[in-house]
Design a binder for these strands. Structure first.
Lengths: 132, 132
DNA sequence: CTTGCCCTTGACGTCAACGTCACCTTTTAG
DNA sequence: CTAAAAGGTGACGTTGACGTCAAGGGCAAG
């Protein structure tokens, strides 16, 4: 497979794939002329990389974790890293849950604009300006 | 309260507070000499802003949502925005859960490095180097 | 008064994950 | 063979939420 195929199949740009390689996340063979050639497994790997990126892991960390996927081994440092990142993700999920709850409270207030829900409505509202 | 107090109590930098004001997220009175003065409620508001930031909402969006908190009202557009962002957060949580599961699989492999879990271990492992 | 800390505005720096452009070479279609 | 499509390597641009530095003003304590 060439880079365009991998890009299409994994849903990321060719630029991103070259960036991943630059960061040591993705390996490629080369043709005699210098064009990148990928194995089928590359698509799956790119998707894993994307998962980690969308979880907020920086490329440096991903670069430390991926060899562990390949070899199935894990040094104590990598193991600690795994635990750290797992904890970070758990915290992020809690933060997201909190923000979601805040939005839910706002949605509820928007649905039932009563004085009980909204202190601002207990006082007569002064003149409001819509911005622009 | 002055900006340093709010910064200390809310755990964000004074620079961040000025940035919030610049983005229309946070209001302040001014002394005759031009120094910012905040109400007690500012601390709570800053924490709410932080929650939204950590949930990945951009300042532009937060700026659209906060007036709704103040007035307790919500235009149809703001209501749609609330729903959109809630959905976005839900998606993010699912993405985080997927990444966490991926990490969990890696952690499990690290705990039980058996051929069943790890194809790489079916072959004799070549000499390993601990980095640094 | 002056020392020292806090505050002001303005402007530039940062960092990460790419987007985009320029310019050139390789591969493919007809 | 020729033109188009795809790929290669730099190198600079983008975006957002601030950090940081410069150059000065405000203010209570001693």
């Amino acid at each position: 497979m060439r880079i365009g195929d991998v890009a299409h199949r994994s849903g990321v740009s060719a630029r991103a794939l070259r960036y991943y390689e630059e960061q040591g996340l993705l390996h490629s063979e080369r043709t005699a002329a210098g064009q990148r050639v990928y194995s089928e497994a590359a698509v799956e790997r790119v998707q894993l990389i994307q998962q980690f990126f969308s979880a907020g892991l920086p490329s440096r960390t991903i670069a430390q974790l991926l060899p562990c996927v390949d070899t199935g081994t894990s040094s104590p440092e990598v193991f600690a890293l795994l635990a750290d990142e797992r904890a970070r993700i758990t915290e992020s999920m809690a933060a997201l849950a909190d923000a979601r709850d805040a939005l839910d409270r706002m949605i509820e207030i928007a649905h039932f604009p009563t004085p009980e829900h909204c202190p601002a409505l207990r006082e007569p509202v002064a003149e409001m300006h819509l911005q622009r």
